[in-house]
């Protein structure tokens, strides 16, 4: 009997969705400020841990090292040196520091969620099809866009089209326009193929991937909910510490 590889996605897609909302809220939105700093630190490390557990050892470890290095750099960079360049650099650094965990989280979710799981999860959350289907196509489209983008980059290299020769604007145009072209063509053919497989019918879909919350799910959901709850309470000046 065939089994579906569960190690592929050990978290329920709904948990991942919650993480995808919670992480930026605290890291980028800065919810809770100093008060919820411990949570922020936890959330920063979490994506690397998840990536590691899902057997993406190399990016997990190297990503974490980069992150730690940046943290360390943050400690030794003088904060009050003044000057425009210094400030711009500082802002860029801060944004990168906060963005990195969110980016890693997104990468983790993209790599470990199958389209089928995603659609099933969205259906359980009663999200209508006209939202689910475009989003589900996205999962498949990132690798496609990357493939097309690389191929076009090669063609430009061969033609000798460099920013030096055609200008930055021209370079971007030459790179982006053909990508858009082929993406539109592929999207068109893809929709046709999906329709001949009965996507978008009036029948309730099933899913070969078993959805369900496990221990890890409960743990992470508890973490997210606690953090969000503390944040909401802190808005009403209710603080635990």
């Amino acid at each position: 009997m065939l089994t579906v590889d569960r190690s592929f996605g050990f978290l329920d897609p709904r948990t991942k969705l919650l993480l995808l909302v919670t992480l930026p809220t605290f890291l980028l939105g800065g919810a809770g400020g100093e008060y919820l700093k411990p949570f922020c630190m936890g959330f920063s490390v979490l994506p690397f841990v998840l990536l590691f557990i899902s057997r993406n050892y190399l990016p997990a470890v190297s990503g974490f090292l980069v992150f730690m290095l940046m943290q360390f750099a943050g400690m030794i960079i003088p904060r009050d040196a003044g000057g425009l360049v210094h400030n711009v650099f500082l802002i860029l650094y801060e944004v990168l520091c906060l963005l990195l965990p969110c980016g890693i989280m997104a990468a983790f979710i993209m790599r470990t969620t199958t389209v089928g799981e995603f659609i099933a999860a969205m259906e359980k959350l009663k999200v209508p099809q006209f939202i689910t289907i475009p989003f589900s196509v996205m999962f498949r489209f990132f690798p496609t866009i990357m493939e097309e983008y690389r191929s076009i980059g090669r063609a430009m290299k061969m033609r000798g089209i460099t920013p030096g020769k055609v200008g930055i604007a021209g370079f971007i145009e030459y790179r982006i326009v053909p990508v858009m072209m082929s993406v539109v063509i592929i999207a068109n053919e893809l929709s046709a193929a999906a329709l001949t497989k009965g996507l978008g019918g009036k029948i309730k879909r099933t899913c070969i991937h078993r959805l369900g919350f496990g221990f890890a799910d409960f743990l992470l959901i508890a973490l997210c909910v606690t953090a969000l709850l503390l944040f909401v309470l802190s808005l009403f000046d209710v603080r635990l510490w």
């Binding site: 065939l2 579906v4 590889d5 592929f8 199958t114 389209v115 089928g116 589900s136 196509v137 999962f139 498949r140 690798p143 496609t144 493939e147 063509i185 592929i186 053919e189 893809l190 193929a193 999906a194 497989k197 009965g198 996507l199 019918g201 029948i203 309730k204 879909r205 099933t206 899913c207 070969i208 991937h209 078993r210």
Partner: peptide, 24 residues
């Protein structure tokens, strides 16, 4: 390159049947 809706093979093979609402 443009006939697969899924990223992994098993899901792709299941896709049409899932749309028909068959038992997993």
């Amino acid at each position: 390159r443009s006939q697969f809706f899924n990223v992994d093979t098993t899901s792709e093979m299941a896709f049409a049947c899932e749309n028909q609402g068959l038992d997993p």
